[in-house]
Design a protein around this nucleic acid. Structure first.
Lengths: 149, 149
DNA sequence: GAAGATTGAAAAGTCAATCTTA
DNA sequence: TAAGATTGACTTTTCAATCTTC
């Protein structure tokens, strides 16, 4: 009946939406989105190729999502699928030359955008922000808030 | 080449995902999601009904999104469409009895979840978090960071 | 012509079911 | 049977094109 905003689900979700939109507007000129860039970075850090299941695990998402994300990255020419010589069930996502280039450039753009977004915060404020966000994030884990079945 | 995480795009986006998932896991037993609940709350606060265009504006999203969101809410029985007597182009979204009930109950759930998520922060820490997030959000506006065309 | 709404296509995510291989 | 990947259905969002009405 009252609905007084106690603290800030909306504040947090709105800020995330703003930040995401800002970074993606910069990435879009490379034909990249944040999910695409994240996948390319995981591949690069893993040494150019990874089984789709591994990719799903490292991106903390479900396997069917990866199937479709790799579909789009393959259509973009940033990744190709290959057979796993050790297990014929498994498919490897392999970074192409174009994928490697766009990953490096996208990582630069992302880092610059991050710098811009947090430029108005002092180093101490950044640490504070990390700490406070961490307290919120952690509150959903560790039995403090048991998940509703 | 270096990719040192300067501050925290990932921290912020991850926290938002965690918070959203937490709240939606609680709302799901009512058949509600955050977008659905937000729409119901806007309707309730507007006095039970609103033209779809107004709804889009107050939810800060595009009109075609509202068309489909209202489709789903109508399928749920929480909203119905009506004709605008003053303008035959316009459609009104009208809160049903079930919609009103679920809006009230969803608002309670949302408020409780908010309390739980921020329970480990002191009142002062909550203010700090709001202030710091506000600085990040504001950095994308006001000419500090002109949008890339 | 411009405003209001809808439709169709796309990206990103989830889940459930299925198909192939181990 | 279980693991790996895909497919199909659904939600949420955007954009472009369209249709009706002003």
């Amino acid at each position: 009946m009252n609905d007084v905003p106690v603290a800030g689900i909306d504040t947090l979700l709105h800020a995330a939406a703003v930040v995401q939109a800002h970074v993606e507007s910069q990435l879009s000129r490379l034909g990249l989105s944040l999910p695409k860039l994240a996948a390319l970075r995981v591949l690069r850090d893993a040494g150019e190729s990874l089984a789709l299941g591994q990719l799903a695990e490292r991106l903390s998402c479900v396997k069917s999502n990866i199937t479709q994300l790799v579909d789009r990255l393959e259509a973009d020419g940033f990744v190709s699928r290959a057979h796993d010589p050790d297990d014929r069930r498994s498919r490897l996502a392999v970074l192409t030359d174009a994928g490697r280039r766009v990953c490096d450039e996208g990582s630069r753009i992302r880092r610059d955008a991050e710098g811009q977004l947090f430029a108005s915060l002092s180093a101490d404020e950044v640490r504070q922000l990390q700490r406070l966000i961490g307290k919120v994030t952690d509150s959903t884990r560790g039995g403090t808030l048991p998940p509703v079945p």
